[in-house]
């Protein structure tokens, strides 16, 4: 590529040494315009970010302790949460949102080879999870979100905004 005559570079060099009035006013004008545009972009971004959401509360009652018998489970479709009462006597709650792309996993109580206690199967892309939410088969790479349930007046309470990482933290012994 042929280089252009170096007028532009010369002009720039001169301008740093000896700025004309026109260049000075131009620089002020461009800076002001740039700041106005940047401010406008920030405002638009903030505008697009809703401050009030019309979403359901994250904390809710999923079941009463007495109604959830050992070996049974409930599914709350609004929040997409499963709550289990394990035959070994403890409770736990898991998100039904597949960690791959967000479809709702289904509980398959018949299980598969090696996981007779039942598995979660995602209908969209076939991810499989153990009863405790660990990945058996991808494409999902992360375990299902685990919640620590609280007990309030005989009701099992889940807060979907608070997840726990380990199975031990998830388990609720009553």
């Amino acid at each position: 590529m042929k280089l252009k005559p170096n007028n532009a570079a010369d002009a720039k060099e001169n301008s740093t040494k000896n700025m004309t009035r026109r260049q000075f006013m131009g620089a002020i004008g461009h800076t002001a315009s740039g700041m106005a545009v940047a401010g406008g972009l920030v405002m638009v971004y903030k505008f697009l970010y809703p401050n009030v959401l019309l979403e359901i509360p994250s904390r809710f009652k999923i079941a009463s302790i007495n109604s959830l018998q050992p070996g049974s489970h409930v599914f709350e479709p609004e929040h997409r949460v499963f709550a289990f009462h394990d035959t070994r006597g403890y409770f736990f709650a898991l998100s039904a949102v597949c960690t791959h792309l967000g479809c709702t996993v289904a509980w398959k109580s018949e299980g598969i080879t090696g996981h007779k206690e039942g598995i979660f199967l995602c209908p969209c892309h076939g991810s499989e999870f153990t009863k405790e939410g660990d990945v058996i088969r991808g494409p999902a790479r992360r375990h299902l979100d685990r919640y620590h349930m609280a007990v309030d007046e005989g009701q099992l309470i889940v807060d979907t905004s608070e997840t726990v990482n380990t199975i031990e933290d998830m388990i609720l012994k009553v």
Binding site: Y45, L48, Y49, P50, L53, L54, E55
Partner: peptide, 12 residues
């Protein structure tokens, strides 16, 4: 979040 106007698909 900006695309959906929230955490899940809704009115926004």
């Amino acid at each position: 979040f900006v695309l959906l106007g929230g955490n899940t698909i809704g009115e926004y």
